[in-house]
């Protein structure tokens, strides 16, 4: 569904992504992990069309993408941002945020579609006319997901969708993303600094460091410790080290 080949992205004079390639089959998920500045979010923004300063090849469903995207592209590809406080317009109600894609793409039945979208992301209908500041962080992120799904895309680009949320809310949002994927056959390209989150959603993981994709491996290999690159090993060790305490606790409570 998504094919990226030799992608290079520049910010002014600096190249921040040095030629990366990846493939995501239809209905699957690909996770990009890395530290801040490793270029992982930049890849998402280049693919979504938000950053036009790139070279290389990107294909959506075997169709090459141009610098400029047409309206049809945005019906098929949508993005969820990291900060649910910053990704919703502060002066627009939930209703308005969800109407916007419908108006732009000229879709009918606005009321019915919005009601359906809210129930799809498990939000009560009572939030429909609220402003973002009247919602909790988790509710905002659900609204952002609902907005991304309004025009019924096939591909969802997820930029750290849970890192601004509390862990209990993170669990709810991760479950929701998984349910939506199964129900709608969505293709995910997920970016996160949290190895466990990526491993939870994606069967294939790419590890980024300093603008390079240093290793692509299956989640099973990662879990089992079959890693090749030292950076992957380092990230894995940090995650596993912290999990020790929690893991034991979970076993005790189970």
């Amino acid at each position: 569904m998504i094919a990226i080949d030799g992608l290079r992205v520049r910010f002014g004079p600096n190249e921040v992504v040095h030629g990366i390639s990846l493939d995501v089959p239809r209905g699957s998920s690909f996770g990009l992990v890395g530290e801040s500045g490793s270029g992982k979010s930049t890849i998402l923004r280049a693919f979504s069309g938000l950053n036009p300063d790139w070279t290389g090849k990107m294909r959506l469903d075997n169709v090459p993408l141009d610098r400029k995207r047409d309206r049809a592209f945005f019906r098929r590809v949508q993005m969820v941002f990291q900060d649910p406080y910053g990704s919703l317009h502060p002066r627009q109600t939930v209703d308005r945020a969800l109407s916007e894609p419908l108006i732009v793409h000229g879709l009918q039945d606005r009321d019915a579609r919005i009601a359906q979208a809210l129930s799809d992301v498990a939000l009560p209908n009572s939030v429909r006319f609220r402003y973002p500041h009247q919602l909790s962080g988790g509710q905002r992120q659900r609204v952002a997901i609902a907005r991304a799904l309004m025009a019924e895309p096939n591909v969802l680009l997820l930029d750290e969708p849970t890192s601004a949320l509390d862990v209990s809310v993170q669990a709810e949002v991760l479950n929701l993303l998984r349910d939506l994927q199964q129900r709608r056959g969505l293709t995910y390209l997920l970016v996160s600094h949290n190895l466990a989150v990526v491993a939870h959603l994606c069967p294939i993981i790419g590890v980024m460091q300093g603008g390079d994709l240093v290793e692509t491996l299956s989640t099973d290999d990662l879990r089992a410790g079959r890693v090749h690159h030292s950076h992957t090993a380092q990230l894995r060790a940090l995650t596993v080290e912290l999990e020790d305490g929690g893991e034991a606790a979970a076993r005790a409570s189970a």
């Binding site: 945005f74 993005m79 941002f81 900060d83 910053g86 990704s87 732009v104």
Partner: peptide, 26 residues
């Protein structure tokens, strides 16, 4: 530069609509 304007751009809205309906009111 905000994410919510980026989100509007990703709906496929044109520049005129973004300025008039989303930027100017703010």
């Amino acid at each position: 530069r905000t994410d919510f304007i980026a989100a509007v751009r990703l709906t496929g809205a044109g520049a005129g609509r973004i300025v008039l309906r989303h930027v100017a009111p703010l």
